[in-house]
Design a protein around this nucleic acid. Structure first.
Lengths: 159, 159
DNA sequence: CTTTCGAGGTTCGTCAAGCGAACCCAGCAT
DNA sequence: ATGCTGGGTTCGCTTGACGAACCTCGAAAG
């Protein structure tokens, strides 16, 4: 058996999986919706709460774990004539979840509504619609999973 | 107020959101991991169960809802000298969730492991690595959310 | 024809998570 | 001193996840 084997066999160790890892960070209920709001510019606890309608206790917990995971950062701010408060802002690590959110949105636009979906994304530079796509490093756009081979990388001994 | 307004205001109806809709379909615990396995070629109940380690009752429920949502399809098959059984296969609708899975995987590869991550995707045609990217219809690759403007599309009266 | 076996579930009791309502607390305005 | 407001915490209830045990159908073995 070669050092790299296709994963169609059952030999693949499923615990070494980045999808599961990512879901452990953002896969709880409300987490991804909190991030959606963050990408829309929401920063304050009360605004998240109003936008989502999530229970405060749950929201408190989700924000705390997202901060702990380094996806959001909790920053003090003060409005004129009001006491100091905190706001939650995306980190670079959090911003890198943008394609995930867009992918989810795109699927929903396609299958869950008729018409274009409630939110349109456009390239700030040129105004053209923005979407997620699979691309390869040679510059081809990959239409779907059938044109992709998944290969197991060798386990680096530890973990 | 114009027919199209930026969404940084709090005027946006958050229930008209494709992210939330998609998560209602695949956002429950295990659902996306079931799909990951499906993309890796798993089709039979027992194989899902062994690969994931999820409780059978939960797995039964997730498979049923994914079938009901049209993401998977339940098909009879028979192995030589064995009774007829069912297998779960991706539909086109399910296959379109591939970019979402890849986006999740890519983020995990980047932030949750050191090194390249346990699974490498390559373009079947040319062998080059495959990744998800934000692109605009003019062919530019969009580096991140800061180069994207989100605009609310007009609510089509009904819903 | 009875028994065994294994895939694909279902049922059950327990325990964790999500829920809404009520409450709290610090500081600013009155 | 009284009230208001943002940002929570606490509480009781309900829903969901969990693992172990049990069930079922058809094929094959005895």
């Amino acid at each position: 058996m070669a050092t790299i084997t296709p994963v169609t066999e059952a030999t693949y160790d499923r615990s070494r999986c980045s999808v599961a890892g990512t879901l452990a960070v953002v896969g709880e209920k409300w987490s991804l919706l909190v991030l959606r709001e963050a990408f829309l510019g929401v920063r304050r606890f009360a605004d998240f709460q109003q936008a989502l309608g999530a229970p405060k206790a749950v929201l408190t917990d989700r924000l705390a774990t997202l901060v702990q995971e380094g996806v959001l950062r909790r920053e003090p701010y003060r409005v004129e004539g009001s006491r100091q408060r905190h706001e939650y802002r995306l980190t670079d690590k959090g911003r890198d979840l943008y394609p995930t959110l867009v992918a989810l949105m795109q699927w929903g636009d396609r299958y869950l509504s008729d018409g274009p979906g409630p939110l349109a994304l456009e390239h700030a530079d040129c105004g053209a619609p923005v979407r997620v796509a699979l691309v390869c490093d040679d510059g081809h756009e990959v239409p779907g999973p059938r044109e992709v081979r998944a290969q197991r990388t060798p386990d680096p001994a530890g973990r």
